[in-house]
């Protein structure tokens, strides 16, 4: 049997909001250590890696490893049925054909169950090695969302240029060009407002706005985002999910023709 309970269903809602624009379906790998998802978008340009540790759940039981293919849009619809303060429990039997979402109101006067059919999926799993990156930026997630949104008005892609002066985001197109520079700011009043730039080597990489604007949907999960970059390799954009895990997005860079 598989059973995972979260007092705050809002966390799971936010996780779904953070992936639903990129993925139509995904396999949820459930084991003793927790729930993991690795899935690429249909164009194979980006990848979502989600990890929810078992010890972050309020109750967790997984008697045997399960691979459950789920429709992200269906799951998202179901989670919209949960009240903001509801507790959520995911439940499946061994060799399941469906998974049940159980929402319970805080004073336990309402219990709602939604059963969702699982889907068979062909999976492409990528082996992503541990990598040390030449530039790691931590910044407020709201600021990153804003930069992606603002620069998207000027072009289809954003160039990230990291130097010892800081990081510069720029975009250009038919209407003109724009750039936004950020310097390290560790004196911010609050930790979540800090900008931390750890640069070993300067770099310049270009990424498609369309995907970046999907990644920033994870902003409500965490006040800070971490961007890890090296020349000519995919960007890693990471948001922590409280004490329970993280969501990492990988995005292939654009290269000059």
């Amino acid at each position: 049997m598989f059973e995972a309970r979260l007092v705050q269903s809002a966390i799971l809602k936010k996780v779904l909001d953070a992936v639903k624009d990129l993925l139509t379906e995904a396999t949820f790998e459930c084991s003793d250590s927790g729930i993991q998802v690795q899935a690429m978008d249909s164009a194979h340009v980006s990848l979502v890696s989600l990890n929810l540790r078992s010890d972050g759940f309020d109750k967790y039981r997984c008697d045997r490893n399960l691979s459950m293919g789920m429709s992200i849009s269906c799951m998202s619809k179901i989670l919209r049925c949960a009240g903001a303060e509801d507790t959520v429990t995911l439940r499946a039997w061994d060799n399941p054909e469906s998974i049940t979402f159980i929402f319970e109101s805080p004073n336990k006067d309402k219990l709602a169950e939604y059963e969702m059919k699982l889907i068979n999926m062909d999976q492409e799993h990528l082996g992503i090695p541990e990598t040390s990156y030449s530039c790691v930026i931590k910044m407020p997630s709201g600021e990153f969302s804003r930069i992606c949104r603002d620069l998207s008005q000027f072009g289809e892609s954003i160039t990230f240029a990291c130097s010892k002066e800081g990081i510069k985001f720029s975009a250009s197109g038919d209407y003109g060009s724009a750039n936004i520079k950020l310097v390290q700011n560790t004196d911010a009043d609050k930790e979540e407002e800090a900008v931390v730039i750890d640069m070993q080597e300067p770099l310049k990489l270009t990424f498609a706005c369309r995907y970046l604007n999907c990644f920033v949907k994870a902003g409500p999960l965490c006040n800070q985002v971490q961007l890890s970059m090296s020349d000519d390799v995919p960007l890693v954009c990471e948001y922590k999910i409280g004490d329970i895990g993280h969501i990492k997005y990988y995005l292939a860079p654009k290269i000059d023709d």
Binding site: L126, S157, Y250, A252, I255, D257
Partner: peptide, 14 residues
């Protein structure tokens, strides 16, 4: 115009 890469060019399928 820069060309969009495929993620599978960077990581092996396992």
């Amino acid at each position: 115009t820069p060309i969009q890469n495929d993620l599978r060019e960077f990581y092996a399928l396992v």
